[in-house]
Design a protein around this nucleic acid. Structure first.
Lengths: 249, 249
DNA sequence: TAGTGGTCTAGACCACGAC
DNA sequence: TCGTGGTCTAGACCACTAA
């Protein structure tokens, strides 16, 4: 067992020390998805704490989005699976009406991979990620066959060793499930910056618009639960068919 | 005391019933800002609950952003006051460097009132607010003397009776504190929609840009804690000097 | 010093899920 | 039926704030 490895204990409350220990063991992969953690009673017994204290520790991790309680069954690792979580980081939507059958503006866009290379990141990106050793992914996302977003994505090579040579079939339309399932990296939060610009030649070609046409840019930095920036991406789309929704509070 | 006024009780857990009761009494204005609520011990005694149960009810309201605990002092109404809260709903910032002394991109823009009238809202706005009886405010917000945003704001007249004839001096650069201090309306959350368009004649004049120039539009709907939409606004700014930041997760 | 919220205990019973 | 998490109790001691 890893204990005392991190200086997590400095006369912290018991429930926080337990939270830190559980978080470390989760990060170490001790319990895979769909595998329940020890019951609250067991944790209380093993740590010589009362159930109430254990509950408070577990509740913290639930609030942080790492765990999920299922009454009568157990406490599980929360898998960023195919429901609302998928959309947590996909708030952009085109101004489209229903197009194909069962496909509306909230559908997940299809994704076409263009390049994947391990490379030295440009300076500003390296500064954000804390390393210049990155993998760059370029792709185009389409809805109903029309390209709507050209993306350029940089991820830390040390956290995603080998992603650049993963079979293309394993990279679905969404990257964050891949990060989690294949590399154990859980994206906990992100910051988006929306701005306005003009299409360069590459972007214009990929989006099928004129060079110099107005484009919307979404720059995103994604973080793990411990605050490490693991991805930076810029997505560009036709400004006239662009809509970005943000919920505050 | 208002009890049973809302059908809040349907064999709900005790802590949720207490939460609902406290939320109702807060909404009714029973405790002003800077006035502490009864202590947890007092609430427990009066409701014949244990302190732990009271704590859980209070914690819910803290999590919802309504209350604020101060150890050793008491539990207080969280006043949307002059710190981070002010910026909660002002995430837009120009691409400006420091201009005046002590004024940076995160300063609160100055606000110039243009019109205030009680009027029938256009249909889409009326649909969102649930009534066509509204007050419309038009204003321009400037940073370092330069206009950056032209705003058009609709609020429910029934919730803000008399705002249109309030002395202009009472409307500071920020409206939400006025909503709260003068009308007891607390904005708990909002949804922003960002898109891009072209400046019409009015907007162009107010922003000092050319008609037809690209503009960024932020449409916002603001809600109270109980989910009532009480404000809809559209803000327009020069697209080239625009940046919208959003934090997710 | 008195009162507040913060932490923690050692139980209890209930609702639910899996077997 | 049995084990799980969900709720709740009636205390305890601590850390902090304010008078």
């Amino acid at each position: 067992m890893l204990k005392q490895s991190m200086p997590s204990d400095e006369r912290l409350p018991a429930y926080l020390r337990l939270r830190d220990e559980l978080a470390a063991r989760i990060a170490a992969g001790e319990w895979g998805p769909d595998r329940a953690l020890p019951s609250e009673n067991a944790l209380a017994r093993d740590h010589r704490l009362s159930v109430g204290t254990v509950r408070k520790a577990v509740q913290q991790l639930v609030d942080e989005g790492l765990l999920e309680r299922r009454q009568g069954s157990g406490t599980y690792l929360r898998k960023p699976a195919f429901d609302a979580t998928l959309f947590r980081f996909f708030q952009m939507q085109g101004r489209f009406q229903m197009q194909g059958p069962g496909e509306d503006a909230r559908s997940i866009p299809k994704s076409q991979l263009i390049t994947r290379v391990r490379m030295t990141a440009p300076e500003p990106v390296a500064a954000i990620l804390g390393t210049a050793d990155t993998i760059r992914i370029e792709r185009v996302r389409s809805l109903s066959g029309r390209p709507i977003l050209a993306e350029e994505i940089y991820i830390r090579a040390d956290r995603f060793e080998g992603l650049e040579s993963l079979p293309a079939g394993e990279l679905g339309p969404l990257l964050y499930p891949v990060y989690y399932d294949r590399f154990g990296v859980f994206v906990a939060r992100a910051i988006d910056d929306v701005s306005f610009g003009q299409a360069d030649a590459t972007t214009a070609t990929r989006l099928g618009i004129a060079e110099g046409a107005p484009v919307a840019c979404i720059e995103r930095t994604a973080f793990t639960i411990d605050g490490t920036a693991i991805e930076w991406r810029i997505a560009r789309g036709d400004a006239l068919n662009f809509r970005y929704r943000s919920r505050i509070g």
